[in-house]
Design a protein around this nucleic acid. Sequence first.
DNA 1: CTCGGTGCAAACCCTTTGCAGGCGA
DNA 2: TCGCCTGCAAAGGGTTTGCACCGAG
Lengths: 159, 159
Amino acid sequence: MHNSHLQAATLRLDRFLELKGYRRTQERYTILEEIYSHQGHHHFDAHQLREILLSKGFHLSMATVYNTLELFVEAGLIKKHQFGNAPASHYERTLGSRQHDHVVCLDCHLVKEFCDPRMATIETTVGEWFQTRVLQHSLVFYGRCTDELCCHRNEKNVN
Amino acid sequence: MHNSHLQAATLRLDRFLELKGYRRTQERYTILEEIYSHQGHHHFDAHQLREILLSKGFHLSMATVYNTLELFVEAGLIKKHQFGNAPASHYERTLGSRQHDHVVCLDCHLVKEFCDPRMATIETTVGEWFQTRVLQHSLVFYGRCTDELCCHRNEKNVN
DNA sequence: CTCGGTGCAAACCCTTTGCAGGCGA
DNA sequence: TCGCCTGCAAAGGGTTTGCACCGAG
């Protein structure tokens, strides 16, 4: 299921590499496949991504991971996020999910997504206000969730 | 002018230290005064803050700067920001300016502020949606400004 | 006098860089 | 073959930590 997203992503990478005159290396396609075939977590950081690939027997260095992620950002295949005080950057794929923003729980660090059409109108307003061509935005709400899986709640329940 | 903000901030720090049982050190009050008496840039990072104080003859270590900034965040005296790929965290004072969000130019890194009342309504909606008590949010629009001072424009004008 | 706060330097961690070797074109 | 890409290790840079000393209460 959802192989269509991987197909679309692969096609996009093909065209991007061709357009830029970059090479079609095995690393680039293997990393892309991992990102777009993964059903679970949409968010990951550079080290997690490397560890998953290593555990599957595909060896690659951190330098390649970072190089490739930067290239994917440039190609519009993934988005880069900085959540609060988290030390590492987080990434998520862009194809197969519409524009959305995030809610992060300060206790359990659970990341949830939402889409509010009002953000688009605000973006337009701000762009006109400052005579700025807005290319992207980052919106994160920080709070304390009431999720049953929230570790903060679990800790409190234990006591 | 605006000494009222410094007074309010000092009072708030007084009460916070008292409430928490923390000590009233010279470093804490000197740093607060620097942040709240500064008329110019609202945004600064830890190293800039230390350099300014050093240049004024007040010696202090990075450890103290970070400790104090964290304490001020806890006290609600300043806010901490992470703008895009900028390596260092940015801080800005909270008193004397109402809730606002930011627009950052990808070329000249100029930071501008705006206030849109619709953000508050979105925050409420999202909180209800996810049964989450939203404590704060971070919204940054990234774009290319048409400001006369934008270094990107200046560079282009030179060529 | 106590012990929280500070200074100093080293440690940490994520990320970037330099260079030699490998592989796509 | 050519030179972009990768691997490896070291360096970079912001932030944190450990420990001894200092000073607020």
